[in-house]
Write a protein that binds this DNA or RNA. Structure first.
Lengths: 158, 158
DNA sequence: CTAAATCCCGAGTAATCAGCTAGGGATTTA
DNA sequence: TAAATCCCTAGCTGATTACTCGGGATTTAG
């Protein structure tokens, strides 16, 4: 388990997709503009997300990306492990021979700690993120500027 | 909040100290051997731990490092933030002007997510780690080989 | 008092990685 | 058939990680 900006970009992008599930697929150029990222870099992130079965691409004009599963079945942990290929956290690559052929202090401790961390992030689904007030507010503000104006927005903030 | 091998080394080293609180200070050479790290690299980690008030150094022969506070008052989050100076997770450095002068989707979402993560790691104290069965077991096995043989060891495992 | 053990400090270095650029397809719609 | 999109591979740059080197400063032991 690893946390970096890469994972954050991916989570934000996936959230973007989740906010537009009822509309047409979202093209990467749109997300790239929104996040201030290069198209090609985003493509690389989405290539991994696609290989992990989190999104599906639709080619040709009017195409873009869609969530491959309902937002209730995609967790933040899913997304992060998809893009930040998890470096094995133990020095001995899980063999347990880190210290003179025995397990070192790090071994059990850290694998366990990162398991707990994973479970925590796995308990947060995209759907839960979408329902957060802060997200609703920003999404509402963005909607008028975006190409999907009027689809679904406006009444969420109150 | 950032998670890397650096933080893991620091946590393990601090755990090492916590296991020897009743004995004399622990010299870095010992920890370096145990973890297979270079002395100088460990020194750099401990310089930060010291600046953050987590450990105190004792100079001269017979010297080494000690916890500066009881193990009940040092959390994993304390240690990690001490060595992995927290890169600001938001693109806009907390100013909130990431997207056209407004807050982007990432902003509130990620600061909040990393706050929760911090709280989780902050809830785990060194003392709690010391009491873990896996740690007790490894510590018991290491004790006879260490320089502190007989000081305090042997009775901890049961 | 001196030598050794330790902490302390700063500079530099090789490898890796994050984030990005470049350049090319393949596929689909208009 | 042309444009919009996804798809793929190969590199490039600057930062970071993990580490080395070379020097102190301070304290205890003999």
């Amino acid at each position: 388990m690893k946390l970096s900006t890469k994972g954050r970009y991916a989570v934000t992008a996936m959230l973007d997709l989740a906010l537009h599930t009822h509309a047409r697929p979202v093209p990467l150029t749109e997300i790239a503009n929104g996040q201030g990222l290069s198209l090609s870099y985003l493509e690389q992130l989405f290539a991994r997300l696609r290989r992990c079965g989190l999104v599906e691409g639709v080619r040709g004009p009017g195409g873009g990306y869609r969530l491959a599963r309902p937002a209730t079945e995609i967790s933040v942990a899913d997304i992060i492990t998809a893009v930040d290929e998890n470096v094995d956290v133990t020095r001995c690559a899980g063999r347990g021979d880190c210290q003179d052929g025995e397990r070192c202090l790090t071994h059990d401790l850290w694998t366990d700690l990162s398991r707990q961390l994973y479970e925590f992030l796995d308990s947060i689904t995209l759907e839960r993120l979408v329902r957060r007030p802060a997200v609703q507010e920003v999404a509402g503000r963005q909607e008028p500027r975006s190409l999907h104006a009027g689809v679904d927005a406006g009444k969420t903030v109150a």
